[in-house]
Amino acid sequence: MELISILLDWFPYLLRGIGVTFGLVLSSLGLGVIIGLPMALGQVYGSRLVRVPIGIYVWFFRGLPILVLLFLFYFGIFPGLGFDLSAFVVGAVVLGLRGAAYQSQIFRGAIQSVGEGQMVAAQSLGMDRLCAVRSIILPQSMRIALPGWSNEYPNILTDSAVCYAIGVAELLTRASQIVAQTYVTMPIYLAAAGIFILMNYGGMKVLHMIERKIAIPGFGSGAM
């Protein structure tokens, strides 16, 4: 009985972590598109001078564990540059920079899967390269990229829990705080796990619905 009252007392505190976790995930997905898409375009259409730095960026951010990236930026790089950022902002930015590295490769694959002939055809109709990319290549490739891109959601969601290490008050941090306060361990951790799992599969359901809506007609949905 005591256990139930403890759970009820602390549950609202835990639930507020959902917003924080969600904020981390959304800003990471958003930054991933904003930075990742230009990087993908640069890797496909850019000169060597553009491609090589992007390649190094992707190699660096995909090769390091998220924990090391968080420590590096939170304790090292940002304070070293004189930025005094909150743990949440650092967490969101680092997840976003890393997400951009992963997502740029998804976008790159999708852009390359649009036949080269279309670019040639667009240019022969008098479009310049930029116009062809914007109005011919991207509308198709973004729809092709969507299934792969939505698979980033569960990855980022589960990675966001590592922001515990720099003290962002997301779900896992709050669960650990409650455990330290109440000495109730398993029920709290399992409740947090349940919330993560619901967010994970619930979010995927929504993303699949969107995928079906904007799939290229006749291409089958999500079968890529």
Binding site: T158, L172, L190, A192, A193, I197
Partner: peptide, 17 residues
């Protein structure tokens, strides 16, 4: 379960839980 919940939480369950 394993794919849905963060690995860090799984480690907490195994070690602290």
């Amino acid at each position: 379960f394993v794919k849905g919940c963060p690995l860090l939480l799984l480690l907490f369950i195994l070690y602290f839980g």
